Amino acid sequence: MTGTPLRVAFAGLAHSHPYSDAANVRALGAEVVGVHDADAGAAEEFALRFGGAAVASLDLLTALRPDLVIATPRPHDVRGFLHLLGSGDAPVFVNKVIAPTGARLAEIDRVLTASSAPVGTSSVLRFAPALVALAGQIGGEDVLALRVHAQHDNAAFQLPDRAWQDDPRRGGGTAVTVGVHAWEMVDVLLPGAALVSGSGWTRTRPGSTSASEDAAGIEGLLRVPGAEREVPVQVLVTGTPGADAYGAEVVTAAGIRSVSLDVDGDQDAVGDQGEGPNETLGFRDLIHALLDAAQRGATVAPWGESRVVVANTIRAAEIARSDA
């Protein structure tokens, strides 16, 4: 980046991603100008660590006139956040999960219809270098089938201050909170593909304290824009103990290609800098893309394109849970 540093504000500190995001914002030459969270103490600590002002409201945050807002609200706060942030001038990017249920998705649609600011959302995996490279390799090929797996230990979702993530109604549960990564990978490989039908299942391991599920799976059909026929897809979502692991296997008319995004340790517990999740899972590349877009007054993964991922994630969870 050259010239005056871009000014980035953070709205909400619901989980760990803003901390990695803020470290990458600074590493890439931009400036953290402010942060707001309902937990004033957490906002103060964030400001001391990354710079900027801890402010008491979203109105005061927008008054700082940031060039970009990175929002990480709890799902029940998303509508209010977008109502206020979407009426400003700065592009807004919402870290997952933006909507855990179909009813919440309908609320987001209504709010964003009246939004004047560009709003985007995605899983960080959209920017994972190896996944992006695989998408480039299969571009233009006839995809016959697709299989993806997203694994993220759900133990952190059961901690007292994050239990909302484990609740299917409040945060989405494992099938949504981890599942969004799987459906983001699907969209990177088959842009715009919509889940039109399927069957599925869920499982909870003996002794688990999860309020949702430890594993969920679905076999379905994807309607891909411009394709002559629907593409079969298998999606496995797991929240079992162990390291993060994300992978995809694509069967094309030219052969089988695959990608594996394995990370040692929990992505929510690693440091802000260096290799691991920061590079492998796309945390650094996400912020690079956001800053580039913000210079044009735009965002990455705009709602008109990213909505299909949210809808697929919710629909897949509904199918798996109803079949179970």
Rank of each mutant, 00 (worst) to 15 (best):
37 D>F: 09
107 E>G: 05
20 S>Q: 03
187 D>I: 00
308 V>H: 05
154 N>G: 12
69 V>A: 13
296 R>C: 14
202 T>Q: 13
56 A>Q: 11
90 A>F: 03
224 V>Q: 07
304 G>L: 09
127 F>M: 12
269 A>P: 02
175 A>P: 07
130 A>V: 02
13 L>F: 00
266 D>N: 10
2 T>E: 12
222 L>A: 12
135 A>E: 05
116 S>W: 06
187 D>S: 09
155 A>F: 09
203 R>Y: 09
125 L>Y: 12
142 D>G: 02
88 G>H: 02
219 E>M: 14
272 D>L: 08
84 L>Y: 00
219 E>A: 13
46 F>V: 01
89 D>K: 13
286 L>F: 10
131 L>T: 07
209 T>D: 15
16 S>V: 05
98 I>Y: 05
62 T>C: 01
134 L>C: 00
118 P>A: 04
74 R>C: 14
20 S>W: 10
200 G>N: 01
78 V>R: 06
91 P>L: 05
286 L>W: 06
313 T>R: 13
100 P>Y: 00
303 W>M: 12
45 E>W: 01
282 G>H: 01
177 T>L: 06
203 R>W: 01
158 Q>R: 15
181 H>F: 10
96 K>N: 09
89 D>Y: 10
242 G>E: 00
231 V>Q: 00
9 A>N: 02
263 V>L: 05
34 G>E: 04
272 D>I: 07
280 T>F: 01
210 S>W: 08
32 V>T: 05
1 M>L: 15
